[in-house]
Nucleic acid binder design. Structure first.
Lengths: 187, 187
DNA sequence: CCTACCGATCGGTAGG
DNA sequence: CCTACCGATCGGTAGG
């Protein structure tokens, strides 16, 4: 029975993802995490062995949550224009769906790690890269002339909506992103 | 002669802006800043009185740099479509112009402060708000139907280009943003 | 602008 | 998973 240990680990990561979505991966300190979960620092630490391993596990747990909220439900739509459209709509909707406590996890963490070479930055980079590739792939299937350009624009608009929502407190931001994306999607 | 003290303060803030553009306002520690400038922590600290005052002064110094690089040079262009176009081009170009050591200061700092209520967040928010208002104002003068929508899209695309450049290492990102903005600008 | 401190917190370890 | 530590660094202060 490794179940109890696995449950504890899952509970730690669940909280870690929300802390990091708010205060970033630096704000995710072992002391704070242990305090909130009412366990000792060293007890928690033993699950990961280093701060970096905790950060990596947190990033992958965030990817799982993003996958469940945006990617998986869209698999019902047909590949190509339908899937692309579904991805985009869910991508915008996810900002207001409280998937993460601090809004888009990738916006919160992306700017933080981009200047820090290492495995954590690489993991974030590759996950974002894979998501943009998936968007571009279905844009290509839909016959869009420059699929990578479209993927870039959608990503930028959704990130912009998150910033508008969180930093400016502008509730219209997702609607603005939706309008711009709608205008850009293939008919 | 308060000149020597003012010079020191200017040198501190000059370095502080670049550190914050890389490691964020939390990465901007008094110890690190003092170390790089080869002065004592307390000597440096005396110029500001608190970490928060240092952060505020750093944000305003960053605004000055952004103004000098993007806003001021565009004043030669005529109000309306011409100015709007000039703003947008310079806004994209500024990403690759090494105005800040860590790329766009506002992208680096925006996601960091958006969950931390207080004077620092308010300052960042108001500066961004003012910039978007200025973009929208000239879009309005140019006869654009929804000036705020256009300002939002331009801001999102430039932020996206910065992320593409810094996080993904995609050198095409500014060109992609430029293309999308060009398509969106009034003829 | 300095030396010399302060209490708190950081990531991490020893040893159980 | 715990108690009890470690050296380093944090923001900040006293006193000059």
């Amino acid at each position: 029975m490794t179940t109890k240990s696995a449950d504890t680990r899952a509970a730690i990561l669940d909280r870690a993802v929300d802390i990091a979505s708010t205060g970033g991966l630096e704000g995710l300190t072992i002391g704070r995490l242990a305090g909130e979960l009412q366990m000792s620092k060293s007890g928690l630490f033993a699950h990961f062995g280093s701060k970096q391993e905790l950060q990596l596990a947190t990033v992958h747990e965030a990817a799982r949550r993003f996958f469940d909220a945006v990617v998986a439900p869209a698999q019902a739509a047909p590949a190509g224009a339908g899937r692309l459209r579904d991805y985009c709509l869910r991508y915008v909707d996810y900002l207001g769906a409280d998937v993460f406590e601090g809004g888009c996890f990738w916006s919160a963490v992306g700017a933080e790690v981009d200047d820090r070479p290492g495995p954590v930055r690489d993991a974030v980079r590759e996950l974002l890269r894979a998501w943009l590739d998936e968007l571009a792939r279905h844009a290509g299937l839909a016959g869009v002339p420059d699929p990578e350009e479209l993927a870039f624009e959608v990503y930028a608009l959704v990130s912009g909506a998150n910033a508008g929502l969180r930093l400016l407190g502008d509730d219209h931001a997702p609607e603005r992103a939706r309008a711009a994306i709608e205008r850009r999607l293939p008919a």
